[in-house]
Amino acid sequence: MVENGYLALAAVLFALGGVGVLLRRSPLISLMCVELMWNAANLAFVTFARMHGNMDGQVFAFLTITVAAAEAAIGLALIVLLFRRREHVDVDDVHSLRG
């Protein structure tokens, strides 16, 4: 069944995003990995919507895309706020706070 392929792809994308957030040091790359995780969920939603033959999953995917745009805007704003006066961005520099 062709849908299974899409689901496998969604799972792989989700895992890649999760690993990326954990391993990459740049907040920008982390943000991109998070987007990858969200979009993996979107792919799964759309695939399931096709399997079930109803629109709930497609509507959910639309909603997620909209929210992801707002989320990215806020994330980028925070990164700019924090690193405006520096030449590079690295999450290891975020250490004024104790764990």
């Binding site: 989700f14 995780m37 799964a44 939603f45 079930h52």
Partner: peptide, 8 residues
């Protein structure tokens, strides 16, 4: 992703 699987 959890919600997507439940929906599935």
């Amino acid at each position: 992703f959890g919600f997507a699987l439940i929906y599935g």
